[in-house]
Simulated scan of single mutants.
Amino acid sequence: MPKFEHLRHKAPRQLTQPRGLLLACAPLRSNVNLSRIARAAGCCGVERIVCAGKAKLDPKIARDACESIQLESHRSLAPVLKKLKAEGYTLVGLEQTTNSSDLHHYQFDRRTVLVIGNERQGLTEDLLAELDAVIEIPVWGMPYSYNVATATVMAMYEYCRQYPEG
């Protein structure tokens, strides 16, 4: 008998409280990236994604997340971030800046909004001005940064590692 039995899908872990993580996305160039972010957010138990611009999920990519995630579209992200900060969320940008913290050493607050920038331009100055912290993911080769969907998934996973119960 084999030591490990193949099991195609395990039931998701149950959170003991709602996930304290929200995502806020600047206008992304690709709905494919947004759909990949949404699919991973669903796996992480994230229930809400706030987007600026014309956000649309591809149901073939986002799959079950289309049903479980509230996707909000706004003309501008800055006013939404101000409102979320007033509600007690810590605003954390995912960007390379002069003073950004290494993801490996950053301790997330439980109530966090992870702010994601555009694939090419990153986070604009007006959005950076709203943030409480900025984190970056180190790279060891070229190019200088990960794809926006990949980086977002890595940051969400680190948050979930720090708060596995919700």
Rank of each mutant, 00 (worst) to 15 (best):
V113I: 03
V139R: 02
I49A: 05
G166A: 06
R63F: 13
Y106Q: 08
A65L: 05
S101G: 06
E165Y: 11
A40S: 13
G166D: 00
E158T: 14
G141E: 06
K56T: 15
I135C: 00
L131E: 11
Y106M: 01
A52S: 06
Y106E: 06
C66T: 10
V153G: 08
G117R: 05
F4W: 09
P59C: 08
P143M: 01
I135W: 01
Q70R: 14
L57V: 06
Y106P: 02
S73T: 10
Q96E: 08
K10Y: 12
Y157F: 10
A155E: 01
C160A: 13
R120D: 14
V134P: 12
R19F: 12
G88T: 02
L23D: 05
G166Y: 00
N31S: 06
L84C: 00
I49M: 09
R111Q: 08
M154F: 08
R29A: 15
T152Q: 03
L21E: 07
M156N: 02
P2Q: 13
I69H: 00
L7E: 08
V92I: 01
L21W: 06
A133E: 03
L34W: 02
V148A: 00
L127M: 05
G45A: 09
S30F: 12
C44L: 12
D126W: 09
G42S: 03
V153L: 14
S145Y: 11
G20T: 00
I61A: 13
V153Q: 11
Q121F: 13
A26K: 01
G122N: 05
M142R: 13
N118H: 01
K3G: 07
E130T: 13
P2N: 12
L128E: 06
E67A: 14
K85E: 11
A41E: 01
V134Y: 07
K3P: 15
E119L: 04
A133W: 10
L22H: 07
A149I: 01
Q121N: 15
H105Q: 10
R110N: 15
E95D: 08
N147A: 04
A38D: 03
E158Q: 14
T112C: 11
L57G: 12
K56N: 13
E158L: 11
A38S: 03
F108M: 05
G53K: 03
S76V: 12
G122M: 02
Q162C: 03
A40V: 01
R111E: 07
V139M: 07
E47D: 12
Y89P: 01
P138E: 04
I116D: 07
R13F: 11
E87S: 04
R8V: 13
F4Q: 08
D109W: 06
R36C: 11
K82I: 15
A155D: 06
V80F: 13
S73C: 14
A151G: 04
T98C: 08
Y157H: 10
A11H: 02
G93Q: 04
R120P: 04
